Simulated scan of single mutants.
Amino acid sequence: MSKATQIELQGGYDTYLLTERFRTNLVGKIYLNDKFYLFSGMEVKAETGNYDNVSSTYRLGFVASAGYAISENFMIEIKRNVQLNNSRIGIFGEILIEMPVVYTI
């Protein structure tokens, strides 16, 4: 959008024992200087079951993050995802273990 503001769309596909998941997020980035930036937005994770006892569901989350561009091709980002809806998606395809607030580096 401008030199200091960016909109980003990401997607990812994961295969676990009981489920398959597609994750996508739409975030806006604001650069505070040449290297340091903040970004936030929404993330949706959709899950489909491989077995009859797992039904399709989705997880809606809010992403709040910060990043530092070490070079043009290498960045370090710290991201927090907070679940907004009452989803049954668990950890790593396991529906019995509740998904916590997720932090990633």
Score class of each variant (00 low, 15 high):
residue 4 A to D: 11
residue 4 A to W: 09
residue 5 T to R: 10
residue 6 Q to L: 09
residue 9 L to E: 06
residue 10 Q to Y: 11
residue 10 Q to P: 06
residue 11 G to Q: 05
residue 11 G to N: 07
residue 11 G to D: 04
residue 12 G to C: 07
residue 15 T to N: 14
residue 17 L to K: 11
residue 20 E to G: 06
residue 21 R to V: 13
residue 23 R to T: 15
residue 23 R to N: 10
residue 23 R to H: 08
residue 23 R to S: 14
residue 23 R to E: 11
residue 27 V to D: 05
residue 28 G to C: 07
residue 28 G to R: 08
residue 30 I to Q: 14
residue 30 I to L: 15
residue 30 I to A: 09
residue 31 Y to T: 03
residue 32 L to C: 03
residue 34 D to K: 14
residue 34 D to Y: 07
residue 35 K to G: 06
residue 35 K to R: 13
residue 35 K to S: 06
residue 35 K to P: 01
residue 35 K to V: 05
residue 36 F to N: 00
residue 37 Y to D: 00
residue 38 L to K: 01
residue 38 L to C: 01
residue 39 F to M: 05
residue 41 G to L: 08
residue 41 G to M: 01
residue 42 M to Y: 15
residue 42 M to N: 10
residue 43 E to H: 07
residue 47 E to K: 11
residue 48 T to I: 15
residue 48 T to N: 14
residue 48 T to E: 11
residue 48 T to S: 14
residue 48 T to K: 15
residue 49 G to M: 03
residue 49 G to R: 00
residue 49 G to P: 03
residue 49 G to A: 02
residue 49 G to Y: 05
residue 49 G to K: 03
residue 50 N to I: 12
residue 50 N to F: 13
residue 51 Y to Q: 10
residue 51 Y to E: 11
residue 52 D to T: 05
residue 52 D to H: 06
residue 53 N to F: 15
residue 53 N to D: 14
residue 53 N to W: 12
residue 54 V to E: 02
residue 54 V to I: 14
residue 56 S to G: 05
residue 57 T to I: 06
residue 57 T to Y: 05
residue 57 T to P: 01
residue 57 T to L: 03
residue 58 Y to E: 02
residue 59 R to A: 07
residue 59 R to E: 07
residue 60 L to A: 06
residue 60 L to M: 08
residue 61 G to T: 00
residue 61 G to L: 02
residue 61 G to A: 14
residue 62 F to Y: 14
residue 62 F to V: 11
residue 63 V to W: 03
residue 64 A to G: 13
residue 66 A to N: 08
residue 66 A to K: 05
residue 67 G to Y: 03
residue 69 A to K: 15
residue 69 A to D: 15
residue 70 I to R: 00
residue 70 I to A: 04
residue 70 I to H: 04
residue 71 S to W: 04
residue 73 N to M: 06
residue 74 F to L: 09
residue 76 I to C: 02
residue 78 I to Y: 12
residue 79 K to G: 09
residue 80 R to D: 14
residue 81 N to H: 13
residue 81 N to K: 10
residue 82 V to N: 08
residue 84 L to Q: 04
residue 85 N to A: 01
residue 86 N to C: 02
residue 87 S to H: 01
residue 90 G to R: 00
residue 92 F to N: 14
residue 92 F to R: 08
residue 93 G to D: 00
residue 93 G to L: 01
residue 93 G to Y: 00
residue 94 E to C: 09
residue 94 E to F: 09
residue 95 I to M: 12
residue 96 L to H: 12
residue 97 I to Y: 11
residue 98 E to R: 12
residue 99 M to W: 08
residue 99 M to Q: 15
residue 100 P to Q: 02
residue 103 Y to F: 15
residue 103 Y to R: 04
residue 104 T to H: 07
residue 104 T to E: 14
residue 105 I to M: 13
residue 105 I to L: 15
